[in-house]
Simulated assay, not measured.
Amino acid sequence: MQDKYYAGAYWGPRQETALECARRAELFFHMLARCDPTFTQWYGAGRGFPRELPGWPVCPEMKELETLFLKGRNRTDVGREVIEDLGFRQFVWNSKKEATKLHLSCGKYSPCGGPNLCLLYPPKQGAVRERLLRAPVLTEVLTCMATAWDPDFAMASSSEMVDLMEEGEFEVRVGWLTYLSRRLGTLPPLPAPVRIEPVGTLGWLLVLSPEPMTAGNPEHVALTARVRELLDRAGLIERPQPEPASE
């Protein structure tokens, strides 16, 4: 069975308006469109969209994205009241079959309910999947996420590898490719063949291998574990647990 890969960026509580999130999303979508031809048009849910399309076309411009985020506000089950501190969330995709899917959650400043995030899920099979699961492409994808969303960390990996490596809920995830914000601390020396690339002045991108790393390969597991250990010793893995809301 093949590993299930994804790319994700994560950051802690950050109070932002729908317009501020839309400004980041506009930059993200425009940068992402340069990573692969299938990333130029996205679609969202809604009633009455043309049957030949995967959904309602998403216009990646700031005002339209602000409206989209406002539609994705979290609400209470009873009364459907807006929960301001849980921010905004949206799901979009780019085709009917073999779709890449995006999950965006931003503007959240509650210590509860998980982090803000940007997740990209490649297709489960097909030529597009094979094209996306290459280190140069995922390097560009993570650079887009880091530049637009300014996360604490981001990574591209398989779910299976994450399950092997992750030791706690509140920690930086280390994967095939890993982005670390300079906010986290100082990067230690890392063993070959790890390649370190700066992402502007924001942080560093670590590429552990030019080829996809799998949880079924002992050498891949050992290298990922070693990198995680060195980052942990440097204080870059553990993240502070969210403080409970004061009454």
Score class of each variant (00 low, 15 high):
residue 62 M to K: 05
residue 65 L to F: 04
residue 65 L to T: 06
residue 66 E to Y: 03
residue 67 T to I: 00
residue 68 L to M: 13
residue 70 L to D: 00
residue 70 L to C: 04
residue 74 N to T: 00
residue 75 R to I: 00
residue 75 R to C: 08
residue 76 T to G: 07
residue 76 T to N: 04
residue 78 V to M: 09
residue 78 V to K: 09
residue 79 G to A: 05
residue 81 E to T: 05
residue 81 E to D: 07
residue 82 V to Y: 11
residue 84 E to V: 06
residue 87 G to W: 03
residue 88 F to C: 05
residue 90 Q to L: 13
residue 92 V to R: 05
residue 93 W to Q: 05
residue 96 K to C: 05
residue 97 K to T: 12
residue 103 H to W: 15
residue 103 H to Y: 13
residue 106 C to Q: 08
residue 107 G to Y: 04
residue 115 P to E: 08
residue 116 N to F: 13
residue 117 L to T: 14
residue 118 C to V: 09
residue 119 L to I: 15
residue 122 P to M: 15
residue 122 P to D: 09
residue 123 P to C: 05
residue 123 P to S: 12
residue 128 V to M: 14
residue 133 L to M: 15
residue 135 A to I: 07
residue 136 P to R: 15
residue 138 L to H: 07
residue 141 V to I: 15
residue 141 V to P: 01
residue 142 L to Y: 05
residue 142 L to H: 01
residue 143 T to Q: 14
residue 144 C to Y: 10
residue 147 T to Q: 14
residue 148 A to C: 13
residue 151 P to I: 03
residue 152 D to V: 11
residue 152 D to P: 14
residue 157 S to T: 13
residue 157 S to G: 02
residue 159 S to G: 12
residue 160 E to N: 09
residue 165 M to I: 08
residue 166 E to F: 01
residue 167 E to G: 15
residue 167 E to V: 09
residue 168 G to T: 14
residue 170 F to Q: 08
residue 172 V to P: 03
residue 177 L to R: 00
residue 179 Y to P: 02
residue 184 L to H: 01
residue 185 G to M: 12
residue 185 G to S: 00
residue 186 T to V: 12
residue 187 L to R: 06
residue 187 L to Y: 09
residue 187 L to P: 07
residue 187 L to D: 00
residue 187 L to S: 01
residue 189 P to D: 06
residue 190 L to V: 08
residue 192 A to L: 10
residue 192 A to Y: 06
residue 196 I to D: 06
residue 200 G to P: 03
residue 201 T to C: 01
residue 202 L to Y: 10
